[in-house]
Design a binder for these strands. Structure first.
Lengths: 258, 258
DNA sequence: TTTTTTCTTGACGGTGCGTCAATATTGGCC
DNA sequence: GGCCAATATTGACGCACCGTCAAGAAAAAA
């Protein structure tokens, strides 16, 4: 139809088209059932052309992962816009990340896989770089919240620590809690804990451990939750359609160890 | 060779033989390169017989995951045997889990995957049950440390909390930190944090957040580390052979927020 | 020895990944 | 317009992998 004139917009647009179709296929079935042939069959291009955009299946997965990280970046951007303390912003980021994990579970776990040799060894240079960029951008939001708390005077770094370390701990802790919550709430076995609620409790524990003031109980009353339910209204509605509600923080058991 | 007499020991023994060969193949290459044909080719049985033991590839992976969990269970058993406070035991369990993740990375991540529909929907009933049993056993060790701390008087549960919740947070936090550490220390991108060391810092943060006494600095001096290096001597040597050292806790930056 | 039961085998169908020679499309040139 | 070169597209092909199953082998029973 239109060869030779693909070098710019066209290419980007078809990239998106392919990724969007792939995402649809994932949502219809699941990630493991996605195949390059299936993608090619559901798109007005042939397999060869698909391989012109993604050098391997792993590269496609990397593309989907990056797609997801862009969604998170957008959620984080909105979280950064709320009115509130550094601690409020940590809460907002956690909320956003949990929202993402519940809405896009496959892509959430792709984020881990993208760091694994089996993926990144077969991804294109271009997409790997984008992956690092996006990671940087996400971590930047966390760092910003940490530094806000420091300038507010609510957080004093312990000797030998820097903000990056703090950001790392916040990230790792949120990831762990959300991963376990996301897994446990959809797998067989005993369900002894309200996992989604515990995500926020865990962040509170970390913050308390860091000596990050004010203490946890502030979350209950503060108007951040209402702000969040406003800025994430469409995402929350999408979640409700899937039968999942996220009315956790209001009933969050609080750790009042001032 | 010997049909009809397979109903008991024979079957178990071949199960192990198959799993052991599969583990060898994984260590030679990697998890993704493992295939049922390859396994059958490296074993004195045919593919059909392999499928007599594992109803699908996913079932084999589940078997490998269980294998790994048994290793962890063994490490945890040894950790439970050390002399020390509840906090020391948490430290020891963290140490053991990190050791496991570094030595058997693929199996560590299989533990997550085993909770994902794409795996557990195709696993055999038998192996799924065993998986839950093992999970129970591992969590039991964490619970035990929590309850030891409570009876010692070092940990007082906040109102509305129970030991299971505490164990969940310890587990999720350790998992997150170790996962991120394991991933980041073997993938491209900036390396701004000594990830392995931070695993212990993160646990300290959680403990501090829980109000779990005594405060963190105790780890540095306590004789637990020496005990650990004794009971995990062979594992540490195996790790060194791979060029990874685990001399972290001694230089662990301590959070002294009593 | 023969029959029956149990276990093993590997060839086969179906699917997925990635390649590449053949084909189609377009821009430039005469 | 007609022709050439450069580029994009196609889908059939080779290879690997998963899971099955009819045919066959081995042991126990008769």
């Amino acid at each position: 139809m239109c060869p030779r004139i693909v070098t710019d917009e066209d290419r980007q647009q078809r990239d998106r088209e392919l990724l969007d179709t792939a995402l649809e296929l994932i949502q219809q079935d699941n990630l493991t059932s996605l195949s390059m042939d299936k993608l090619a069959a559901n798109v007005p291009y042939s397999k060869g052309t698909v391989y012109n955009h993604f050098c391997s299946k792993e590269d496609l997965l990397l593309g989907l992962c990056n797609c997801g990280m862009e969604i998170v970046a957008d959620l984080f951007d909105r979280a950064a816009g709320i009115q509130g303390s550094g601690r409020d912003h940590v809460f907002a980021l956690t909320y956003a990340y949990l929202l993402y994990a519940l809405l896009y579970r496959d892509q959430f776990f792709l984020h881990v896989q993208s760091k694994t040799p089996s993926l990144y060894e077969k991804g294109s240079q271009e997409r790997l770089e984008r992956n690092l960029q996006l990671e940087e951008r996400l971590l930047g939001h966390v760092l910003q919240a940490v530094e806000q708390a420091i300038t507010e005077g609510n957080l004093q770094l312990k000797p030998g620590w820097d903000s990056m370390q703090v950001a790392f701990h916040l990230w790792a802790s949120a990831f762990g809690a959300i991963a376990v919550a996301s897994i446990k709430s959809q797998s067989p076995g005993p369900m002894r804990v309200q996992f989604k609620r515990e995500v926020f409790n865990q962040m509170a524990l970390i913050l308390d451990g860091l000596g990050w003031k004010p203490s946890t109980s502030a979350w209950k009353a503060c108007p951040v939750l209402q702000q969040l339910e406003t800025i994430y209204q469409s995402e929350l509605e999408a979640l409700e359609k899937q039968g999942i509600s996220l009315s956790i923080p209001a009933t969050c058991s609080q750790g009042e160890n001032a």
